[in-house]
């Protein structure tokens, strides 16, 4: 960058992105967002009672219990969040102490996140279990099940938003310190979530390629991708103008070290490939292309978290500015 050769103080420490949260946190943010997003879409399908095909393998027998798989392909989101949550624990210095955070829910967003995710996982898995367990005493047709479903839905929304709030709450990183980040992660959660539901329903035959339900689902997914693109543009343009570090972060993403993550990972895999391939698959009525588009979009969702995480540059400390002034004065004299 041009500033680096002119201002050695700036080049030394100034544009170095944070090194504390790395890939493990990106995986956590991704799985939590995608799992929550897919559950939101899945429960909406469940509520709107879109007509679903009978599965080719409608049930399996486990320990003599007949498990009904009819709703499994649309309600598996909590499993993804359950897989993602341990990644946050894996990143801790002393892993078993994560319990301390659970015991202090009002202290910070990290602690609140433990609670939000835990409630979502418990209620989400409960809804999933109800969908496949055959026990009559569960009264699966009872209207009372709407209560845990609504709770799981609300906490799924909370989980998708929380992945952005966690970064926003750190305050010292201008790239993250914006309300647009939770919105961006929510939009991404919904687009990756709806695409994962498309893949799972198409793969299991729950929805056929030409069914009305699939058309609605694909239209919804495309709207989510467009909204995500608009929010990403607003996010980057606003952060570019927010502060010098915000500008450096955006530069790092677009033209700096992370340009491959941004252009190939986020833009190409996350936006261009899926949109183009979905359009071609519609034209040729080819579901295989839709699978490739889906995998591409899901990969792009991961790169979005990775890029945002790695591009976080901290605010300039006041002393840094003082040093810059002193250096400039030395040069003048």
């Amino acid at each position: 960058m041009a500033t680096e050769s002119v201002q050695p103080i700036r080049s030394a420490k100034y544009v170095r992105p944070q090194q504390e949260w790395k890939e493990i946190i990106a995986v956590y943010l991704y799985l939590a967002g995608m799992g929550a997003g897919s559950f939101i879409i899945g429960i909406l399908i469940h509520w709107t009672r879109i007509e679903l095909n009978p599965l080719s393998i409608p049930f399996i027998e486990l320990f003599g219990v007949r498990l009904d798989l009819a709703k499994f392909p649309i309600l598996w989101g909590p499993i993804m969040v359950s897989i993602g949550a341990p990644f946050l624990i894996l990143d801790l210095g002393i892993k078993w102490r994560f319990m301390y955070a659970c015991l202090n829910p009002r202290t910070s967003w990290v602690a609140r996140g433990f609670i939000i995710l835990s409630i979502f996982i418990v209620f989400g898995l409960l809804i999933l279990a109800k969908s496949f367990l055959p026990f009559k005493w569960l009264h699966p047709e009872s209207g009372l099940w709407l209560i845990p479903e609504v709770i799981a839905f609300v906490f799924a929304l909370g989980t998708a938003l929380y992945t952005g709030i966690l970064l926003k709450a750190t305050k010292s990183v201008p790239l993250w310190n914006t309300h647009l980040l939770p919105l961006l992660f929510l939009a991404s959660a919904l687009s990756t979530g709806s695409m994962s539901i498309i893949l799972s329903t198409l793969g299991t035959g729950l929805l056929s390629y030409n069914s009305e339900g699939m058309k609605v689902l694909m239209a919804g997914e495309q709207i989510c991708v467009v909204i995500e693109g608009i929010v990403l543009y607003l996010f980057l343009s606003r952060r570019y103008r927010a502060s010098e570090q915000g500008k450096e972060s955006v530069r790092l993403l677009i033209t700096g070290k992370l340009r491959y993550v941004f252009w190939q990972g986020i833009i190409l895999l996350g936006f261009i490939f899926p949109v183009v391939l979905e359009w071609i698959s519609k034209y040729y009525q080819n579901s295989a292309l839709l699978f490739i588009a889906g995998l591409s979009l899901l990969t792009g969702g991961f790169f979005l978290r990775l890029g945002v995480l790695h591009a976080g540059i901290k605010d300039q400390i006041p002393m840094q500015r003082l040093m810059e002034i002193q250096y400039d004065m030395k040069r003048v004299h």
Partner: peptide, 13 residues
């Protein structure tokens, strides 16, 4: 009490 989450390191300007 510290769990080593390093959030404080990211938060400190």
């Amino acid at each position: 009490l510290c769990i080593g989450c390093r959030t404080c390191i990211i938060a400190c300007p």
